[in-house]
């Protein structure tokens, strides 16, 4: 009972802070609310006994990616006057893109209600611990794991290449 209660409270807090991300007027505040949202999501992971995922979510998203976001936003110093005019075209495409994403999420939700009944991560209490996660990643899911790391390397090489090219132009 208490576990369910906590997850309901956490869930509503997560949604509230996620809403604040898009409702805040200032981009910096949006990023800070996004960080808070990541914290709540980490708390959800801990509730499901996935401590490793929770901490990695905190280190990678809240600790690294969001710091870079904040870094860029501080350099840009966005404010009301600099906000670009939204044309009708961009408004329209934004509605379509958002609607499509919403549709996908509803489908996922339907699947959860249909097949996911009675399934909970807490039933396998050790599933999220580092040892089990590592064993799974290096046996059952080895191929996807390695492929995703190749994807990361490709992204890194691309970033380095972009940075290099810019330097040559300056010279």
């Amino acid at each position: 009972m208490s576990l369910q209660m906590i997850s309901v409270i956490l869930g509503s807090l997560t949604i509230a802070s996620a809403l604040m991300v898009i409702l805040s007027k200032h981009p910096i505040r949006s990023v800070i609310y996004l960080v808070i949202t990541f914290f709540f999501i980490s708390a959800m992971y801990i509730l499901m006994n996935a401590q490793f995922l929770a901490i990695v979510n905190m280190i990678v998203y809240a600790g690294a990616i969001m710091v870079l976001f904040l870094f860029v936003l501080m350099l840009l110093n966005l404010n009301k006057e600099m906000e670009p005019e939204t044309t009708r075209m961009s408004l329209f495409s934004a509605i379509i893109a958002g609607g499509t994403l919403f549709l996908v999420m509803i489908t996922a939700l339907r699947d959860t209600f249909q097949y996911g009944k009675g399934y909970s991560a807490v039933k396998v209490p050790e599933a999220g611990l580092v040892e089990n996660l590592g064993n799974l990643l290096f046996s059952k899911y080895l191929v996807p794991f390695e492929i995703s790391s190749i994807l990361f390397i490709a992204a890194m090489v691309g970033a380095v290449l972009l940075a290099k090219r810019e330097k040559q132009v300056i010279d």
């Binding site: 800070i32 401590q51 490793f52 901490i55 905190m58 280190i59 600790g63 710091v67 904040l70 580092v130």
Partner: peptide, 21 residues
């Protein structure tokens, strides 16, 4: 914590927010 060292890194990585904000 069975992931104590990662906890330390998590806290270190969010520690910069105080200075940035």
């Amino acid at each position: 914590f069975n992931i104590g060292i990662l906890f330390v890194f998590g806290v270190v990585s969010i520690g910069v927010y105080g200075i940035m904000i």
